[in-house]
Design a protein around this nucleic acid. Sequence first.
DNA 1: AATATAAGTTCCATTTTGTAACTCACTTGA
DNA 2: TCAAGTGAGTTACAAAATGGAACTTATATT
Lengths: 160, 160
Amino acid sequence: MKWDEIQELPCSVARALSIFGDRWTLLILRDCFIGIKRFDKFQKSIGLSRHRLADRLTKLVEHGVLRKVPYQEKPLRYEYKLTSKGVELYPVLMSLAKWGDTWMDNGDGPPIEYMHTKCQHKMTIQACCSECGEEINPKEVIPQVGPGLRAYADNIEKAK
Amino acid sequence: MKWDEIQELPCSVARALSIFGDRWTLLILRDCFIGIKRFDKFQKSIGLSRHRLADRLTKLVEHGVLRKVPYQEKPLRYEYKLTSKGVELYPVLMSLAKWGDTWMDNGDGPPIEYMHTKCQHKMTIQACCSECGEEINPKEVIPQVGPGLRAYADNIEKAK
DNA sequence: AATATAAGTTCCATTTTGTAACTCACTTGA
DNA sequence: TCAAGTGAGTTACAAAATGGAACTTATATT
């Protein structure tokens, strides 16, 4: 299977990965959450080639995850900002960071810590149930066929 | 910067992505959470080449995310199971799935829905504060330099 | 004896990356 | 006013990663 076919699969993980499933894109978004907005800053922060960076930024804009906002006129220059579609990736990045803090620590402790202004504590992200609020244990979650998968299966039937 | 240098950066997202930041690895792990364990099943489910799949499984085993467990003797065959290091990626995958459900829906609704056996409701994952339990709003979280980053900076100083 | 199953490996053409240099439209400092 | 600097890219080309198909090895089945 080629990579660009992946976005048509009836799987939300696969569809999301069709945008983020490459070496650099999630690092670009990490930078966005830190407040980085400009081409050169991304490039220096991440160290990927300018070529790739231009690509990735364009793709993120096309997908509506970032938007270009002009910040000066002469010469015309844009900065890249998270849209709400982009901001909603926060849990993905925080979960990834938490996992890295736990399992890829080299003994020095977490590179970054997080303060929750609401409760004034150092915190980590916790995965909770939207209904009962309890922390989620993977064993207590049962995946079930949903409408999107049924529709997909029906279409395949019809095509026969 | 080359990709394999990324794991040394003082950033937990970057370190995690040094393992998962490619096209297929997170899809393999998605399959693990669905209960897929064997080479051929992965291959059919995901559609990546056998060559790549072998690579990726080996890498995941090397990093302790999966482990090989023999399931028959003649001929000797192994299946791949999540370690606890692997299971802890659950929030990453669920957040990604939730994002895909929200933003990459093609109008048919989510392909998969989730039932929380504990409360008996259809649920989605929610990012909460480990300290106060409230749902996290990215604007209410302040990143701060942690011990891992200080140690890294100190080492660079010493090297001068 | 021929075919099937499971888990890989090998070979090779195609794609994607990384590096470094180049462009374009200004701004700044001497 | 002329040279150098800044910011955001683009181009060309070599190196690395990927996809596809066929091959291997060990055993079971018919």
